[in-house]
Design a protein around this nucleic acid. Sequence first.
DNA 1: ATATAAAAAGAACGACCGGTCGCACACTTT
DNA 2: AAAGTGTGCGACCGGTCGTTCTTTTTATAT
Lengths: 209, 209
Amino acid sequence: MTGTDGRLARGERTRNTVLDTAVALASEAGLDGLSLGQLADRLHVSKSGLFAHWSSKEELQLAAIEHARDQWARRVVGPALDRPRGIRRLFALHESRLAFYSERVLPGGCFFAIAEFESAGRAGTVPDRLAAVLAEWITLLERLVTEAVELGELPPDTVPRRLAFEIDAAGVAALLHSRLLARSLDDARQAVLARLRGLATDPDLLPHH
Amino acid sequence: MTGTDGRLARGERTRNTVLDTAVALASEAGLDGLSLGQLADRLHVSKSGLFAHWSSKEELQLAAIEHARDQWARRVVGPALDRPRGIRRLFALHESRLAFYSERVLPGGCFFAIAEFESAGRAGTVPDRLAAVLAEWITLLERLVTEAVELGELPPDTVPRRLAFEIDAAGVAALLHSRLLARSLDDARQAVLARLRGLATDPDLLPHH
DNA sequence: ATATAAAAAGAACGACCGGTCGCACACTTT
DNA sequence: AAAGTGTGCGACCGGTCGTTCTTTTTATAT
């Protein structure tokens, strides 16, 4: 009987554990600041043991990106997609993003934000992949805006790209200031809520406060 | 006759040159990522020569913060304060910030943004000083909003803290995405312009597009 | 039981990190 | 002229970085 090789299963489990910690550490120090020595120490593992699973730091970084993307899809995008299409789903996405920050799922707040800042202007496989994931996120926001327009919940002259930018901006700033300005997460929620209620053809689809 | 010690003058000149480059490098790699070796190489100077002016990397980091703050005050805040008080000055501040980014004054875009991300959640003299400078910036934005309200150019029920947050958020997101999304700077301008024109008692005080 | 292959440890590498030291030069003060 | 001070260099320190190589442990397959 084959199919469940305990060795492979153990490796898979190890990889997952390592990537969990790697994403958490990188959310604080960035993908560059992430050090294999510190990562190994945190996991009570030898540094060379990591090379049994990834052949270089860059490969581990790329794996961490995919891991963080999965986490984001599961914890932020997933719950929003449970809501009905349109303006409610759009706002729910913004709210679950803010919840991800306020629940401190990652100690640094957000893996992608610091990674994007860090790799701005640089070239390479890692920045390329990060750019692709970011484009995915912006496209998702734009698509939800477009759907709300098509459903008649937002006015037809809405510019999806700009509204998506505005909503994302609130999230980015909330994260950046969350350590310093206590109310930044609440400000980000209220700002987008007020903006969407101002635009919505039926504001009652959204919470009142 | 005293007052012009050639040695002191030379030192002052050197310090300024070093800090210019330090701020530029730190805008890309962050204050942590800033390496004394790379900084010295870029300036065609020996590493130990840097220690003739600052006793540790942390002191150089603190000096770089003050240098970047001066630069920001001169190139962003100063021009805006030439405009008449009120909503025009408020929007001018946003515009000169975006100009600072689009002119690529710093190769990384903004010294403070990456420094703030990097030092989020950490303790120490450097994060403390960065927090103080950020608070200064937010306070300035809030004050300009408040002035516009007092002049009757914005409605009396305006919440200065929230509007300041919204304007800052557009700037932060514009910077973060400027490397990837070509129109992010224009989006940030249009978003704030539309928002302020929507609120203003006299929209003609602001540009039309 | 034994062969096999994945997982992990351990030691060592060259490069770079922030930092220290002594020394030389330029300039001012006495 | 001598002493003192600001500036800057080159050599070097202990430590950490990513990486490589060899060896040992662990679990499956035969």
